[in-house]
Nucleic acid binder design. Structure first.
Lengths: 150, 150
DNA sequence: CTAGCGGAGTTCCTTGAGGGAACCCCGACT
DNA sequence: AGTCGGGGTTCCCTCAAGGAACTCCGCTAG
């Protein structure tokens, strides 16, 4: 398919896609996050082809999103999120927020997320890191930054 | 390639991916957001194949993310974000946050985002919609919701 | 000791999506 | 009448996703 490489673009969206933008990858990260750490579990849960799963897991390990740990003295491995991997989950939570709002229908959200700090079922609310007010597309101006392209 | 359909899964991440998970789609949305509303502009900016761009634009219009507007009495069209499309940008901002933090390197972020409400260059901070405290992967418990699978 | 099992891949074949270039349509200008 | 330019459509080629079969290798049961 000779897919275009997004990693070289001067855009953090493109670069992030280079890490987690391939089909299945976000779902693999979700599975690992909810405690499905082994190859067979993930493969059966998603119904993904074993070949593609191997590829995705290796890619994520290479990029430092997942860590591969032996869990037996047999050659058995578990995959766990690294710190940067866990932070990627912020992106998935944003997807959950949008999907719950626009695609869940009247059945309601398929999965609930409880915020441990306050104990409430909740969702993420993107806020400005400076002033703490809501920060959405319509509240934003875009400007070139220091790492902008040549 | 007979890609698996994510839209039917009982998971808001998968459903959101069904809308914006294909290659190029997030970058198309970004381009439209920053004011590149026409086919030729987007095609040249991204270097995407015209065929794929047509497909992606149609898909996004069908899903109600983009709106196709004539802008001349010639057959010319512009694409604009709908409300639900603009809200999808929350997901892209989460990608920007992660990419800026982990992939920008010492050159710094390629693009800056200014929060119009406070005037500061900033980034999004995911917070709990209930208590307002930070909400990350490590602060969350996952539970089945009303729309869970069969 | 051999047979079988189960986790974790690897190999191989088929199908179809992405890349890329060429082509088409159509209203407007010259 | 000819050309331009936006917005696609068509065609061919390559390579990635699906899916099934196969491999490897330590453990365990007979």
């Amino acid at each position: 398919m000779q897919r275009t490489d997004f990693g070289d673009m001067a855009c953090s969206i493109a670069r992030t896609l280079d890490v987690m933008g391939e089909p299945w990858t976000p779902l693999v990260i979700r599975d690992v996050f909810v405690g499905m750490n082994r190859f067979e579990q993930i493969q059966q849960d998603l119904g993904i082809s074993r070949k593609v799963l191997t590829e995705r897991l290796n890619h994520l390990v290479e990029r430092g999103i997942l860590e591969r740990r032996p869990y037996d003295n047999r050659p058995r491995y578990e995959y766990h999120l690294t710190d940067r991997g866990a932070e990627l989950f912020d992106v998935l939570m944003a997807m959950v927020g949008w999907g719950d709002k626009w695609l869940a229908g009247k059945a309601g959200p398929p999965v609930l997320y409880r915020h441990r700090a306050c104990g409430e079922v909740s969702h993420v609310d993107p806020r400005c890191s400076r002033c703490g007010e809501p920060m959405h597309a319509t509240d934003i101006d875009v400007m070139p930054g220091p790492g902008a392209a040549r």
